[in-house]
C-alpha cells in the first residue's frame, strides 16, 4: 500500500436519484482493503442502492441517475473507458435471498468462469472445488455436485451463492443483508465465513442488524435518509457514536 491507490474502492461525492427522488446524497468514503465494512441504517435509507451502485447494477433501472465518482483500483467505474462486465467480474455480489440458478450445483459455480472465457472442464473443475471449499460448502456437497441447486437448504444455497461469486476471483465482495433470510444457525455459519473471507477479500456488507455489524465488521458506515452520517472503525462507533442519530439507531430508538 505504497501508491496513491491505497483503497480498492473509493467513493467521492456520490449522489443518486430514482426519477426526481434523491436516494443518496454526497457520500464520500474509502473502503479498507481486506476488511469487512458494514453499511448500517434503517430500511429505506439507501443502503442497498449504495451497494448496487458500486457494481453498476442500478444501470438497468430506467430512471436511475448518479453523480460523483466511484473508483475501483483508481479507475472511475462510471467513466467512459469503464468496462461494466469486467467491473462486475472484479466486484462479486451476494444477495439478500439466496438465488442459486435452477441448475446443478456444479453448473452454478461454473457459470461465472465460463462467461469470462474459461471453457475447458479441466480448468473448471478445480475452480468449482476451490470456490466451494472457500465458501465452506465443499464437504456437504462434494458427493452431489450434479444435484439441482434449489434442493439445498437455505443456508447451503446462500453459501453456494458465495461460492458462485468467488468463482471469478473478485477482489471485492458486496453482500446485501446476506443472512437476513436465514435461520440463526445458518446465519452463524455465514457470519463466521465472512470473517474468514476478509483475509483475501474486501467485503462490503449491508445490514440492518446492529449486533451483526458489530460482530463481523472492522469498519462501519451509518446511512440515514440517504446521507452518510458516520463512517469509522466499528469499535469506535460501537463505543462512542459521534452523532446522536447513530446513537439512536444502535440503541434501537430508530430503525
Amino acid at each position: 500500500m505504497m501508491t496513491a491507490r491505497t483503497h480498492q474502492i473509493e467513493v467521492y461525492d456520490l449522489s443518486t436519484w430514482f426519477g426526481p427522488k434523491a436516494v443518496l446524497k454526497n457520500i464520500t468514503c474509502h473502503f479498507s482493503d481486506n476488511a469487512v465494512t458494514a453499511i448500517m441504517g434503517p430500511s429505506g435509507c439507501g443502503k442497498s442502492t449504495f451497494l448496487r451502485t458500486i457494481n453498476r447494477l442500478n444501470d438497468m433501472i430506467g430512471n436511475f441517475r448518479m453523480k460523483g465518482k466511484i473508483l475501483l483500483e483508481g479507475e472511475d467505474i462510471y467513466g467512459p473507458q469503464a468496462n461494466v462486465y469486467e467491473l462486475r467480474r472484479k466486484i462479486g455480489m451476494v444477495f439478500q435471498r439466496p438465488n442459486p440458478f435452477p441448475m446443478s450445483i456444479r453448473d452454478n459455480v461454473k457459470y461465472g468462469p465460463r462467461l469470462h472465457g474459461v471453457k475447458d472442464d479441466n480448468e473448471l473443475d478445480p475452480i468449482v472445488e476451490k470456490s466451494l471449499k472457500r465458501a465452506a460448502l465443499w464437504d456437504e456437497v462434494k458427493d452431489g455436485l450434479d444435484e439441482p441447486a434449489p434442493n439445498l437448504s437455505g443456508g447451503q444455497q446462500q453459501r453456494l451463492c458465495i461460492a458462485r461469486a468467488l468463482s471469478v476471483d473478485p477482489p471485492v465482495l458486496l453482500m446485501d443483508e446476506p443472512v437476513s433470510s436465514l435461520d440463526p444457525i445458518s446465519a452463524q455459519k455465514i457470519e463466521n465465513l465472512i470473517v474468514e473471507l476478509k483475509k483475501d477479500y474486501t467485503i462490503i456488507m449491508v445490514t440492518h442488524n446492529v449486533q451483526q455489524a458489530f460482530r463481523v465488521s472492522d469498519q462501519a458506515a451509518f446511512l440515514y435518509l440517504g446521507e452518510l452520517i458516520e463512517f469509522d472503525k466499528t469499535r469506535r462507533i460501537a463505543e462512542a457514536p459521534a452523532d446522536e442519530r447513530t446513537e439512536a439507531f444502535i440503541t434501537g430508538r430508530i430503525g
Partner: peptide, 12 residues
Amino acid sequence: SCATSGTANETA
C-alpha cells in the same frame, strides 16, 4: 474530484 464534489453538493 474536489471540483466535481462542489457541483454535486449544490444539486443534491
